[in-house]
C-alpha cells in the first residue's frame, strides 16, 4: 500500500514541486493551500504523512501542527516542516509544535525523498 502524503503550502509552485518529486517515487500526494483546508482534509482522509509550510495566511504551520497533534488521529503521524525560516527559534517552535523534522527551503529533490522515506519508514 502506498504512503498517503498531504502537502500543505500556500504556494501552488511549491505544492507542484513536492508532488512531482514524491509521486514519481510512488507516494500518493494530496495538497492543501492553507491550515484550515488541511484540517478539513485530515478529518476526511487518513494521511500517513504531512509536509507543512510555516508562513501561510490565517493559520501558521506551527498552529496547524499543534492542532493535528491534539487530534488522536494525528498524534503519531510524521510531520516535516519545510520553510524559508532558518532561525533557531523557528526550528525550536516547529519541534515544540510537534514536527518530526524541520527543513529549510529550498530542499533538493533527493534530500526530500531520502528523508521522507526514512521518516515514513519506507525502504
Amino acid at each position: 500500500m502506498s504512503v498517503h502524503i498531504l502537502v500543505v503550502d500556500d504556494s501552488s509552485t511549491v505544492r507542484g514541486y513536492y508532488t512531482s518529486i514524491l509521486s514519481k517515487a510512488g507516494f500518493a500526494v494530496d495538497h492543501a493551500a492553507n491550515g484550515y483546508e488541511a484540517l478539513e482534509k485530515a478529518v476526511k482522509f487518513d494521511y500517513d504523512f504531512f509536509i507543512v509550510d510555516i508562513n501561510m495566511p490565517k493559520m501558521s504551520g506551527y498552529e496547524l501542527v499543534r492542532q493535528l497533534r491534539e487530534d488522536e488521529r494525528g498524534v503519531g503521524v510524521p510531520v516535516i516542516i519545510i520553510s524559508t525560516e532558518a532561525k533557531d527559534s523557528d526550528r525550536l517552535e516547529g519541534y515544540r509544535a510537534g514536527a518530526n523534522l524541520f527543513l529549510v527551503k529550498p530542499v533538493k529533490p533527493e534530500r526530500l525523498l531520502f528523508l521522507t522515506k526514512i521518516i515514513a519508514g519506507v525502504r
Binding site: 501561510m56 501558521s60 498552529e63 517552535e93
Partner: peptide
C-alpha cells in the same frame, strides 16, 4: 516578529 501569526497578519 518570531510569532508566525503576527508575521502573517502583517502581510495581510
Amino acid at each position: 516578529s518570531e510569532d508566525a501569526y503576527l508575521r502573517n497578519s502583517a502581510i495581510e
